[in-house]
Amino acid sequence: MRRAFAAFGAFGAFWGVWGGAVPRVQQQAGIGDGQLGFALLFIGAGALPAMLLAGRALDRWGLRFSAWAVGALGLAGAGLALTAVNLPSLCAGLAVVGATSGAADVAQNAVAGRAEAVAGRPVITRAHGIFSTMVVLGSLASGLTSSLPLVAPFAGVAVLALTAAAALPHGGDQDRGAPAPAPRGPIAPLLLIGTLGALAFASENAHQSWSAVFAHDVLHSTVGTSAIAPAVFAGTVAITRFAAGGLRPPYARIVLLAGAALAALGAVVIALSPTLPVAALGLVVAAAGTAVLFPTLVGIVSRDVDESHRGRATSVVTTVSYLGFIVGPVYVGLCAEAIGLRGAMLAVAALGVVLAALTPTLLRPFRDRPGRGIPR
C-alpha cells in the first residue's frame, strides 16, 4: 500500500512542478504562445503509445517495470529542464516526458489495484488523493524555487521519483506477472469502462484548464484572484479523495452516479454564477463529483481482472480515459467559440449527465459476472 502511495506522490509532484514551471520552460526555450501550444501536443503524442505498451510490460515484468517507469519520469523531467533551449528540443523532451508519464500512469494504477486486491480494503482512491495533494504542493514548490535554476525543482522531483522507484520491489517471482499470455475474455467491457473514464477526465480537465479563464473573462476578477480557481478545484479533489477513500466496493455504482450528478450540478452553478464566490462554490461541487469517478472505475476493473492480466486491463482503461483528458479542454474551447464560456460550462455539465445515463448500461458486463468484485 505504501508503495502505491509513494508512486502516486512522485507522479503528482512531477506534474505540480511542471504546471508551475511552464512559463519558465517557455522562456528558456525562447518560444511564443502558439509554439508552446504546439509543443504541448507532444506530451499526448508520447503518452498514448506508451500507455498501450506499458500494460504488456507490466504483465511480463510486474513491479520491476513500475519501478523503472516511475524513476524514468523523474529523470525525464530533469533532462527536459536542462535541454529545452529551442522548439525542437522542447518537442523532443516533451515527447519523452509524455512517454514516461504514460507508462508511469498505467504502472501506478496497476500497483494500486494490486495493493487493493491484496489488502482487501480501499487503496486506489486514497492514492489518487495523494496525487492531487502533491500536485498542489509541487506547484507551490515550483513557485518558491523560481529564483533558482530551472533544473532545481525538477531535480528535487527526480530524487523523489527515484526514491519511490527504490521502494518498489525489483525482483522475485511474486512481483512478476505471467510471461505475456494472450488476454482472456473480451476487451469490449474494458473499452466501456474507459469510455466512462474519458467522460470523467474530460469534465475534470475542463475545469482545471478553464476555471481561471472563466473567472477572469466572465466574472472579471483580477489575474491573481483568477489563479485561485484551479487551486480550489485541485484542493477539493484531494480532500474528497481522502474522504471517500474508505468507501467499500458495494457502493461503487452509487458513488459513480452521485459523482456524475455532482459534476453536472457544479458545472451548472458555475455557468449561472453572478460572482466569483458563487463560481467557487460550483467548482467545489464539481470537484467533489469528478474526484471519485476515475478512481472508482479503476477499482472496478482491478477487482474484476486476473492478476496475470492486470497490466493490460489497466492499460486499456487508462489509455481510453486519457483521451478524455486531452479532449476536455479542447471541447470547452470549441463550445466557448460557439456559445460563450457560460454556455461551455453547460456543455461540461452535459458530460456529467451523459456519464450518469451510461453508467448502468456500461457497467452491466462487470456486474453480471458472478463471484467478481462488481456489485449487483
Score class of each variant (00 low, 15 high):
328 G>D: 09
282 G>V: 14
311 G>P: 09
292 V>L: 08
278 V>H: 05
278 V>I: 15
306 D>V: 09
274 P>R: 00
306 D>L: 13
339 I>P: 02
321 S>K: 02
338 A>K: 01
308 S>N: 05
297 L>Q: 06
323 L>H: 01
318 T>Y: 01
302 S>A: 15
283 L>G: 07
343 G>S: 04
284 V>N: 04
279 A>H: 10
274 P>H: 01
282 G>A: 11
301 V>S: 13
325 F>P: 00
335 C>G: 07
293 L>Y: 04
310 R>L: 15
302 S>T: 07
274 P>W: 03
272 L>Y: 03
272 L>N: 00
321 S>F: 09
301 V>W: 03
308 S>E: 14
340 G>L: 07
337 E>Q: 14
304 D>L: 05
312 R>I: 14
335 C>D: 02
324 G>F: 11
280 A>I: 14
284 V>C: 03
296 T>Q: 05
304 D>Y: 02
306 D>H: 13
303 R>P: 01
309 H>S: 11
294 F>W: 10
311 G>N: 11
272 L>P: 03
338 A>R: 11
302 S>E: 14
321 S>L: 04
288 A>F: 14
291 A>H: 07
301 V>R: 01
311 G>C: 08
313 A>F: 07
273 S>R: 06
313 A>K: 01
279 A>N: 07
305 V>N: 00
314 T>H: 02
296 T>K: 00
310 R>M: 15
317 V>Q: 03
289 G>R: 03
309 H>T: 09
276 L>D: 07
287 A>Y: 13
